[in-house]
């Protein structure tokens, strides 16, 4: 069992970094999607939702093409950091961000949609600038949306397999995440260790999902 600890720590680390970065990137995207009247909105929404339906291996395959050291992005990364994007933690983070994007953006967009224009207009008339309105009004009114988005992103990142295998490979302590370690145990017929990891993941997911549904059940309607 102790052999699984690095994999667990690596996975938690990856999920935490991914969730944090997605908060920063996903919030403005979700805000834009909730408020824009642009004609390209459905197209951007479709792109955001794409990771939900594409097989993870497809995403992983394209990321491998894009991030490998001979491609422009991959080469740029090597010259800046001296490390490759493929088969590294940084590469895994980029892959996870893309893979988990809809789990961050969709709950946020729903939360922002529900606030509506009325309260925002009132705050503006009271002298609040757009940034001030976001922090004093939008953020507290969509707190549950943020919590849901964060939890779903985190747990979804923990469970990813295909993308990680394609982009990160299986390097212990570097890219071997929980689900890859589980696959390894099964391959090597170490069923007791596989059981421990699999059951752990099921229980954790169940607890987290229950928490999300419980939060959403208690969520009041802001339809002033």
């Amino acid at each position: 069992m102790s052999g699984s600890v690095p994999a667990i720590l690596l996975t938690l680390n990856l999920a935490a970094v991914t969730t944090l970065i997605l908060f920063v990137l996903g919030t403005p995207l979700a805000w834009w999607l909730a408020n824009t009247r642009s004609r390209v909105r459905p197209f951007i929404e479709a792109i955001t939702a794409l990771p939900l339906i594409l097989p993870p291996t497809v995403i992983g395959f394209y990321l491998l093409i894009l991030l490998n050291p001979t491609a422009p992005i991959g080469r740029f990364w090597v010259t800046v950091t001296g490390d490759t994007l493929t088969f590294s933690f940084a590469g895994l983070v980029i892959a996870s961000i893309l893979y988990s994007l809809p789990f961050m953006v969709q709950p946020l967009q729903t939360a922002f949609d529900r606030i509506g224009r009325d309260q925002i207009e009132a705050a503006a008339s009271l002298g609040a600038s757009p940034l001030d309105r976001f922090f004093s009004l939008v953020l507290p009114l969509s707190a549950r949306g943020f919590l849901t988005a964060g939890i779903l992103t985190f747990i979804h990142t923990i469970g990813e397999f295909g993308v990680v295998l394609m982009v990160g490979g299986n390097i212990p302590g570097r890219t071997r995440t929980l689900s890859i370690a589980l696959y390894d145990h099964v391959e090597a017929l170490r069923y007791d260790q596989a059981h421990a990891l699999a059951a752990g993941l099921v229980i954790l997911s169940l607890i987290v999902l229950s928490l999300v549904y419980w939060l959403n059940r208690r969520s009041p309607r802001h339809d002033g």
Partner: peptide
């Protein structure tokens, strides 16, 4: 000029109080 810089007080008919 953005609304927040005009310094207009508006009493909306539907009040628009902040629920939080």
């Amino acid at each position: 000029m953005p609304v927040h810089r005009r310094r207009i007080g508006i009493a909306f008919q539907d009040t628009r109080l902040f629920p939080h």
